[in-house]
């Protein structure tokens, strides 16, 4: 474990906590895309199939359980919670997200490191994670006005991805046989998707004004 990997995991964890905090304490999911949250739940479910068969460390197991538990409880909150679900902006969240899964699955069947069920599902989760943020970004563009917690949530998610790229660069130079084209290409694409958001986030931070995306 290097410092970049740890920073990546911690910003990822923080992003989830910020979102849960918003939903749990304010009882609101305004500005949050259920479509993106459902995709994240599928990402973790298909990636952690080896949760009970491939032990790596206590840290890994606990983090996996946190990401699984949090992603499914966020989806539950938005869909089922009596108060929270009323704040869900359904009309702004119209992305046909399940259509994103097919190309990811087909790509995973053809481009993977090993053709086994577990490996194909793992690769599928890597591809799906790369584009899972799209419904959320589309929703941001539409609503334009972004509250602080939603802005911080997306910023932390983007930071998590950026730290993972630094982690891969570090591991490439410090470990033998560390070449993983699939995760790298998917990871870079995923990080680039946050580029636009980062730009406006830093602008608003620098000028000390409320974050607002251009029409």
């Amino acid at each position: 474990m290097n410092i970049f990997r740890l920073a990546g995991d911690m910003t990822h964890l923080a992003s989830v906590l910020v979102l849960l905090l918003k939903i749990h304490t304010i009882k609101s999911c305004a500005g949050i895309s259920l479509k993106t949250q459902e995709l994240f739940a599928i990402v973790f479910l298909t990636r952690y199939l080896d949760l009970f068969t491939n032990f790596i460390s206590i840290y890994n197991t606990i983090m996996k359980l946190i990401f699984l538990g949090s992603s499914f409880s966020i989806v539950w909150y938005i869909r089922r919670h009596r108060v929270v679900r009323r704040s869900y902006d359904k009309d702004q969240d119209t992305f046909r997200h399940f259509f994103l899964m097919w190309p990811c699955l087909i790509l995973a069947i053809f481009i993977n490191e090993k053709f086994t069920l577990k490996e194909v599902m793992w690769t599928f989760s890597i591809y799906l994670e790369a584009i899972a943020i799209l419904p959320q970004l589309v929703m941001l563009q539409r609503t334009r006005n972004i509250d602080n917690l939603t802005g911080q949530y997306i910023f932390l998610l983007g930071a998590y991805r950026a730290f993972y790229i630094l982690n891969w660069i570090y591991r490439y130079f410090t470990e033998e046989h560390y070449v993983h084209w699939i995760t790298w290409v998917a990871g870079v694409i995923q990080t680039l998707l946050y580029g636009d958001f980062f730009y406006y986030y830093f602008q608003s931070w620098k000028n000390n004004v409320k974050l607002e995306l251009p029409a």
Binding site: I56, S57, K64, F67, Y164, E176
Partner: peptide, 10 residues
């Protein structure tokens, strides 16, 4: 750690 294993990432 085992070299080159990306499955230890989250």
């Amino acid at each position: 750690s085992i070299s080159g294993d990306s499955k230890d990432e989250l």
